[in-house]
Design a protein around this nucleic acid. Sequence first.
DNA 1: TATAAAGTTTAGCCTTGGCTAAAAATATAA
DNA 2: TTATATTTTTAGCCAAGGCTAAACTTTATA
Lengths: 217, 217
Amino acid sequence: MDSVAVENYLKSIWELGPDDVATQDLAQLLNVAPASATKMVQRLTERGLVKHIPYKGASLTSEGRRRALSVVRRHRLLETFLAQTLDLGREQLHDEAERLEHALSTELETAIANYLGNPERDPHGHPIPGPNGELLIDEDILLSDCSLNQSLVVTQVPDRDPNLLTWLEGNGIFPGTKLKIISRDDFGGGINVSLDDSSVQIAISVASEVYVILETD
Amino acid sequence: MDSVAVENYLKSIWELGPDDVATQDLAQLLNVAPASATKMVQRLTERGLVKHIPYKGASLTSEGRRRALSVVRRHRLLETFLAQTLDLGREQLHDEAERLEHALSTELETAIANYLGNPERDPHGHPIPGPNGELLIDEDILLSDCSLNQSLVVTQVPDRDPNLLTWLEGNGIFPGTKLKIISRDDFGGGINVSLDDSSVQIAISVASEVYVILETD
DNA sequence: TATAAAGTTTAGCCTTGGCTAAAAATATAA
DNA sequence: TTATATTTTTAGCCAAGGCTAAACTTTATA
Ligand SMILES: [Mn+2]
Ligand SMILES: [Mn+2]
Ligand SMILES: [Mn+2]
Ligand SMILES: [Mn+2]
């Protein structure tokens, strides 16, 4: 069984990947010093889970990817399970799952998946990898890349920052929300979107973490 | 925050206590070498969580006890939560809780407790400590210590051994079961109990892990 | 009561996963 | 194209939590 640290590194490399994951980015995501990340990347390379080209970057081997996706699956199943049973706010889920994901047996993972009816997405709209690492390919696009006046539906919101998530939620923006960009304020640094019965200004930095699809109906 | 190892040691000392916990017993319960247990007991003494009299035994300080009970609370809440939501068998609960107990925030602990309606006992009949370490005092007695033909109700079964638990369950013995000792077979090494519509022979070693009360009605 | 056995602690070692400071490589700018 | 920043790696250190083997206490036995 991989240690908590190993599981976190694999998942982070997956999140930053697929290729040339920079030591610095990895270190920052995991809150460790760059030297620590280098060392762990070397250990994982030794174990055959990572491929590392010094001074260039790291990437997962197929076994590394398999294990990373297993962690991601547990994480997203847990978020979904906690959201469904207890009712925690969407913004509380991530941090809990971040710790619980390392303590789930395969049996419990399966029991939770069955209980939930093998869901395809977690409460943030992120696809849940299958038990063998099958991952839905999303064809959604960034809100920040959309044109004016298209009818859009939110598919995914970021899950790491509780404050951001609370703000989005408070403005009615979460997976399933229908919206439309009504103007871009390039110098004001944001876009204006209209929802069913309100409108909000969203910073580009935020809009480039929200995924949407074109409304089809 | 205490590490996983520290939490496990504190909980184990509590389980073996309250006084003069032997190095060997601690080591065995935790699956480590006696020397490892000694060293950790010394570190915990240094931290003010344990009192250690060399060659005599270890015990918890009040702060150590507080933290141990916090782990026990999380463990038992988790067992109850898993039993209630997913339906795992009573024998699967313990091992899962054993790992999850270290990954629960206070917020999630509270959310689970509220969801469950602040239960007093877990699925094995073990009392769940309150959020500040208040612990119900049980006045139940060992099945192995009871006389013949008393009307008894099972209150607690052991939770560590899945096979034992499966056997008990299969014979209809779990918290709430009404039974009566109909004979003791001192040389056969067991007691015979009758249930509602069956009877079973139970080894003394098993009967001395099952708690009961006299039926009051 | 002397000796053997059992239990406990000490000594010394190891791996994991952190850290800082310095060196080396790569990227950027002058 | 050379000098400067930036990024990455190496070197050396540390604490936690394991281990085995040897020394020391305590307990049991003859
Ligand atoms: Mn998440
Ligand atoms: Mn998520
Ligand atoms: Mn248990
Ligand atoms: Mn229990």
